[in-house]
Computed example of a mutant assay.
Amino acid sequence: MEINWYLIAILAVFVLALVVYTVRQNLKEKKKLEHKLNNDFKKREPSQHNDED
């Protein structure tokens, strides 16, 4: 039984490319989510406190 090194090398390159692609997509999505969470809230209007007791 002979090991097919060319097939293993091609598979390793494919897996490495897939990992790099996934990490880059994850970073893009993380930036989008962080921006959305930082800017997607209702800003409160300054409330006037009446401290009349």
Rank of each mutant, 00 (worst) to 15 (best):
M1E: 09
M1I: 10
E2C: 12
I3Y: 07
I3R: 07
I3E: 05
I3D: 06
I3S: 05
N4W: 02
N4I: 05
N4Q: 04
N4T: 02
W5C: 11
W5L: 15
W5I: 15
W5Q: 09
Y6G: 12
Y6T: 11
Y6F: 09
L7K: 15
L7M: 13
L7H: 14
L7P: 04
I8P: 03
I8Q: 09
A9N: 06
A9E: 05
A9G: 02
I10R: 02
I10P: 00
I10A: 05
I10F: 04
L11E: 05
L11G: 08
L11N: 08
L11S: 10
V13L: 07
V13G: 02
F14P: 02
F14I: 12
V15D: 00
L16D: 01
L16T: 10
A17R: 00
A17V: 02
A17K: 00
A17E: 00
L18S: 15
L18R: 14
V20T: 10
V20A: 14
V20M: 09
Y21C: 04
Y21N: 04
Y21K: 07
T22E: 09
T22H: 09
T22S: 15
T22Q: 12
T22K: 13
V23L: 10
R24M: 15
Q25M: 05
Q25W: 05
N26D: 11
L27A: 12
L27M: 13
L27W: 08
L27V: 12
L27P: 00
L27T: 10
L27I: 13
K28M: 11
K28F: 12
K28H: 12
K28P: 01
K28A: 11
K28T: 14
E29S: 14
E29K: 15
E29N: 15
K30T: 13
K30R: 15
K31F: 04
K31I: 06
K31L: 05
K31V: 07
L33D: 07
L33Q: 12
E34S: 13
E34Y: 09
E34Q: 14
E34D: 14
H35Q: 07
K36W: 04
K36T: 03
K36C: 01
K36F: 07
L37E: 07
L37D: 01
N38R: 03
N39C: 01
N39R: 01
F41N: 02
F41H: 04
F41R: 02
K42T: 04
K42D: 03
K42G: 03
K43M: 02
R44V: 06
R44F: 07
R44A: 08
R44N: 06
E45T: 11
P46F: 11
P46E: 10
S47M: 08
S47Q: 10
S47D: 04
S47P: 02
Q48A: 13
Q48M: 13
H49Y: 06
H49E: 08
H49Q: 08
H49P: 04
N50P: 07
N50H: 13
D51F: 12
E52N: 09
E52P: 01
E52K: 07
E52F: 07
E52L: 09
E52S: 09
E52M: 06
D53G: 08
